[in-house]
């Protein structure tokens, strides 16, 4: 159980919620969030860690109320409780050297904590961030505290802005069209790319096999073995 510290819109149809008391995870991991005791909606909703403030013991999520579960979250007030089960999933591998982060829409959320951890692991490294939005940008300022460059694209294809030929590690999270475009570009440039996948989930812990995908090494669970994969391994699942 975690306590809601803040829960407010940061853009049209986008909310940011900070909670206290959830176990601290790392970039790329997620929580199954659920209104305590609710039987309808019943299942937790997978929501990525957007930022962790370890000193305060706070975890921040950025989410889009698109259905019944997430709409319920948007109605929660500071001081109320939320069930935050997790952190689940493998998280992003923190590679050395230059890094390029690509986020599309709500997929920008997990990239923020990644930028933070990459910066912390190496204050001198170069971090380029590319953010793509359909209509309105968010989190741009927050990224600026950790990245060397933040490029945003509204209404276009963010992957077109990215040079995949750098000697760098690429990380991407966003809609499938974006991930497919990134994979194609990474193929052409022979780049190293990690993608975070999304699947409908029931348990979030690897027990129900509701979220498995075909990989080069047999079937894997997006919730437990992922959600972050080397794109080459999950080419057919993107």
């Amino acid at each position: 159980m975690a306590e809601i510290i803040k829960n407010e819109p940061i853009a049209n149809g986008i909310y940011r919620m900070s909670v206290f008391g959830a176990p601290l995870g790392r970039a790329g991991q997620f929580f199954m969030l659920r209104v305590p005791g609710a039987l309808d909606p019943l299942l937790g909703r997978p929501i990525s860690i957007c930022e962790i403030d370890a000193d305060k013991g706070e975890t921040t999520f950025v989410y889009q109320p698109i259905g019944r579960g997430t709409a319920q979250f948007a109605a929660l007030l500071p001081g109320q409780q939320i069930e935050a089960q997790g952190p689940y999933g493998n998280g992003f591998p923190l590679k050395g050297g230059r890094t390029v982060l690509i986020g599309g829409g709500i997929g920008t959320a997990p990239m923020l904590q990644l930028a933070k951890e990459l910066r912390k692991s190496d204050p001198a490294r170069k971090i380029d961030v590319f953010l793509g939005f359909r209509e309105e940008a968010y989190l741009e300022k927050e990224f600026e505290s950790y990245a060397d460059n933040v490029t945003r694209n509204i209404g276009g294809y963010v992957t077109n802005d990215v040079d995949f030929a750098l000697d760098a590690t690429y990380y991407a999270c966003g809609p499938s069209v974006m991930l497919r475009a990134a994979a194609k570009a990474a193929d052409e440039a022979n780049a190293s790319l990690f993608v975070s996948l999304e699947k409908h989930m029931a348990c979030g812990v690897g027990a129900c096999l509701g979220c498995t995908c075909q990989t080069e090494h047999g079937r894997k669970r997006v919730c437990k073995d992922g959600p972050v994969f080397d794109y080459r391994e999950v080419r057919d699942a993107i």
Partner: peptide, 21 residues
Amino acid sequence: GNKGMRVYETPSGMLNSIGLE
């Protein structure tokens, strides 16, 4: 197991089509 969508929430319940993976 089965291809495609495997779990889908319904009012106070869920449908699954895991297909005995």
